[in-house]
Design a protein around this nucleic acid. Sequence first.
DNA 1: CCCATTACTTATCATTTGATAAGTAAACAA
DNA 2: TTGTTTACTTATCAAATGATAAGTAATGGG
Lengths: 142, 142
Amino acid sequence: MDKKALFDKFVSFTTSVHRTTHELTQNVKSDSITPVQYSILEYITVSQPVTPSEISDCQHISMPNTSRELKKLSEKNLIEKLNDTEDRRKQYIRLSKEGETMMNEAFSSIECRFLNRIQNASKEDLEDIDRALDILQTKLLY
Amino acid sequence: MDKKALFDKFVSFTTSVHRTTHELTQNVKSDSITPVQYSILEYITVSQPVTPSEISDCQHISMPNTSRELKKLSEKNLIEKLNDTEDRRKQYIRLSKEGETMMNEAFSSIECRFLNRIQNASKEDLEDIDRALDILQTKLLY
DNA sequence: CCCATTACTTATCATTTGATAAGTAAACAA
DNA sequence: TTGTTTACTTATCAAATGATAAGTAATGGG
């Protein structure tokens, strides 16, 4: 197995993933939030409840900047901050009702485009895709 | 085949790809260029020669901003602008010697980390990965 | 209790990025 | 030839993002 060739294939693969992600997600974001705020909301959506520190670590945003953006999201009523009863320094961030609504709309739109993309795939194709996703997830993206 | 479940799997898959990409590429960029400039150089590297219009289209940067960033890259002696002899409005952008060197270093570093990541994979694993990349590339990311 | 650490905040500033208007020069079509 | 379109540039401005210093308040170890 030529590992150099596999690397080259992986490079063009990631390029394709990024391009496809862009196609699936373009314009799903409300104009009332910035790109960074949207990516924070995406992270909260799939991982809630999360602490500001976790957001900072996983999204590679400094704590001061994370704090600032969370404050803005809170002012827009898209998230809620809950205090930890054990450790009163900690916070837990969750989507608000309004935030849920916004993110549901965004994900519905993305899902719709995704389904459109695979509409012509046969049952076998879908199973191939499913298997391929599993393989890469476990053997490469761990 | 449950397409909704496949979508969910795809979402966490793309998240993993983005996380892995970040791990493989962090700090490979020279401090002398900005993130956007690096991504333009990456695009030029794999597609050269390219026109400013192509960069603008593919990287989703407006023509004025593309022009500005290319000017900066040119001033840093990382790229060269060549005039089309047929159509004198057009330009072709290539990496300069210095740009080649910079991008070779970056890609070597990324490749090294990639090889490190697959070092424990068996021959069969590598073949599985190779096949999985092909499947997704042709059936999903076209 | 005291000191160090952790979790988060506030304030400030510089840089990067994005958006828009206006302009040049070449190509092209009527 | 004249008007339109294309490819790219310049200038300018606003917004988003990143970086840093300093601060609060709670925790926890000795």
